[in-house]
């Protein structure tokens, strides 16, 4: 979907660019641009909703103002989207520029429709565990707070997809064998899982943080109409290190649907993490790892596969340990 992003004078991203893969794991210290990358994608999504600004708007831009430029993969590689910024943090001018090569030069409408589906998540287990309004069923919200409603609606409207989701949940967490929804006063919906051993029901607020995050992720993976791009901040939060493989596998189903026999369109995934254990899982796919670094006031992106002498570096330890050691970058600066 997004092939590359280039930043100029946007916050700490003075001059840096990045090619994006179908799946992207972003690592780096706080304040190094992990969130800025996601913010830029979301701002593109927000501005795509509005009518395009005419070229006269160019004059509103400061010549040295911030700029974020997006290129896309086919069938939209004939277009470039440029976010012009009125300050170095606020970008509110979207220009779409036809390129001399590539497809989709005349199809801003098609690209726009895809960009409108972009979604960002930062799951919070307390929000996921709370009952949600039965009217809030359209799509999962930022913190996963309407999970029960979204899933109960999916069971009604997309029973096959729901059945696949449930089967995957019980495979990943064999301690459960049934999922059910409860209507509460005030038009609220709660969810509960049944313990396979004792047939006892466990309501959402008593489920573990990890179980709730897995449920949220499954909700995204078994979405009958998946978005073009999903961003998830701090994927590893509250998840046992040994569950991270399953989390990665789930997200790969989104990015590479054909590999698991799905006919759905691929979803570009951008995930941030601070977990060396999650990073360990990308040893064979360094091109999927984005390292953000800050030197002084300036931050930049590099891909792990661009790391000098990567094969030798990888021979000496696990990727997570190498990251912690500082060898591959992406660690806080120390004075």
């Amino acid at each position: 979907m997004i092939a590359s992003v280039a930043f100029r004078n946007f916050k700490a991203l003075r001059s840096t660019g990045l090619a994006l893969s179908p799946f992207n794991l972003v690592i780096g210290p706080n304040g190094s641009g992990k969130t800025s990358l996601i913010q830029a994608v979301l701002q593109l999504h927000n501005l795509a909703r509005l009518p395009l600004r005419q070229s006269g708007a160019e004059t509103e831009r400061r010549p040295e103002g911030a700029e974020i430029t997006f290129r896309f993969s086919p069938p939209y590689d004939g277009l470039e989207a440029s976010l012009g910024c009125v300050s170095d943090t606020m970008c509110d001018l979207l220009q779409v520029i036809p390129l001399s090569t590539g497809e989709g030069v005349d199809d801003w409408a098609g690209l726009r429709a895809r960009l409108l589906t972009v979604r960002n998540y930062m799951f919070e287990h307390t929000a996921i565990a709370a009952p949600s309004s039965d009217r809030d069923y359209a799509e999962l919200t930022l913190n996963g707070g309407n999970l029960a409603t979204v899933l109960s609606a999916r069971r009604i409207h997309h029973p096959e997809e729901f059945a696949r989701l449930a089967a995957e949940l019980f495979r990943m967490m064999p301690e459960y064998d049934e999922i059910e929804f409860v209507e509460l006063p005030g038009r609220l919906i709660d969810l509960k899982l049944r313990l396979a051993d004792t047939a006892e029901w466990v309501v959402a607020e008593n489920l573990s943080q990890g179980t709730l995050y897995v449920l949220a992720l499954l909700t995204l993976v078994f979405d009958p109409a998946p978005p073009a791009i999903i961003c998830i901040e701090e994927l590893d939060r509250g998840v046992h290190p040994r569950m991270l493989r399953e989390m990665r596998d789930l997200l790969y189903r989104l990015s590479y649907p054909k590999e698991t026999g799905s006919q759905k369109p691929p979803v570009q995934v951008i995930v941030t993490t601070h977990s060396p254990y999650l990073l360990d899982l990308f040893r064979d796919h360094p091109e999927e790892v984005v390292i953000t670094e800050k030197h002084g006031a300036a931050a930049r992106f590099t891909r792990l596969d661009q790391c000098a002498d990567l094969t030798n570096v990888l021979s000496s330890g696990s990727l997570g340990d190498l990251w912690f050691s500082g060898v591959i970058g992406g660690v806080p600066e120390e004075k």
């Binding site: 495979r171 790969y252 796919h285």
Partner: peptide, 19 residues
Amino acid sequence: TRRQLKGRAYGTERPNLYQ
């Protein structure tokens, strides 16, 4: 490479744990 072996053994370079 390791990656090629995975691709040839599992039919995909990104097998899930079940596959």
